[in-house]
Amino acid sequence: MRKFLAKWWLQHWIYLCLGLGLLIFAIACTPIDRLSTPASLNSRYTDEQPALSGDGRYVAFISNRDGSRRLLLYDLQAQVLLPLPRLQDRPEAVAESPSISYTGRYIVCIINDQGRPSLVLYDRVTRQRQILSRWYQGWVRNPSISPDGRYIVVESSINGQWDIEVLDRGSRIELDIPDGVPIEGRKS
């Protein structure tokens, strides 16, 4: 009887250990939703190329927290990372050089997907991205967006050297202005 109990106990102990091991493995392999938990601005991963919104609330930056170079947006007031759905559709796409408008509505950056860098404008209100360099003949780098989101300056190689180009998004776009009052029209 003693041998039977010892054998039974050993078998159940092994099953218990295996079950616990599988549970721990499953928990360890489950991705953490980094957007629903408070986060710090810096991490144990590489966080670089910061851009601060004009109102000082948001920081756009590049991080390899998810195993690829992705653009992240951090809310300094709430101390959380904010979602940027549809900005980088493919995990292989590499983001760099972010620039952010006054209240953080518009973000412009370079996304390198399949070997060709694209100038991308992202609207956080509509959650849409627009590739601004789709039919562009040259290469682009180091974009910067104006506080109101209308103008974007970028370095361009269209003339065989690096030059600066100013892109005007037009007068019919929704500007990124706080309280509907343009910055130049505010009373100090």
Rank of each mutant, 00 (worst) to 15 (best):
G54R: 00
K7Y: 09
N42M: 14
D176N: 08
S157M: 07
D66P: 01
D66E: 15
G54Y: 00
W8M: 11
V140N: 05
I14P: 03
D113C: 03
L20R: 03
I145K: 00
N112G: 00
N159W: 04
A28P: 01
N112F: 00
R186Y: 07
D179H: 12
I164A: 13
I107F: 01
I100S: 04
G115W: 10
W9E: 04
Y151S: 08
S97L: 05
L121V: 02
I27M: 03
R86Y: 10
W8Y: 14
S99G: 10
I177M: 06
R57Q: 08
L71G: 07
L23K: 02
Q49N: 10
G67I: 13
G180D: 04
V154Y: 01
Q128Y: 05
C17H: 14
V94L: 14
T37Y: 07
L71K: 07
Y58P: 00
P143H: 01
D89F: 07
Y136A: 07
F61E: 02
Q88V: 03
F25T: 12
L71F: 09
A93K: 01
R169K: 08
S156C: 14
W13P: 00
W139M: 13
R116Q: 12
Q88I: 04
S144C: 12
G149S: 09
I14G: 03
C109H: 06
R116G: 06
S40M: 08
S171R: 15
G115F: 08
D148G: 12
L52S: 08
V125F: 11
D179S: 10
S43G: 07
E184S: 14
I158Q: 13
I111L: 13
R150L: 12
A95Q: 09
D168G: 10
A60E: 01
C17A: 15
L76I: 11
R86A: 11
P85H: 12
S157R: 05
Q49D: 11
M1K: 09
L22Y: 02
P178V: 08
C29N: 15
D47K: 05
G21M: 07
A60L: 03
G56T: 11
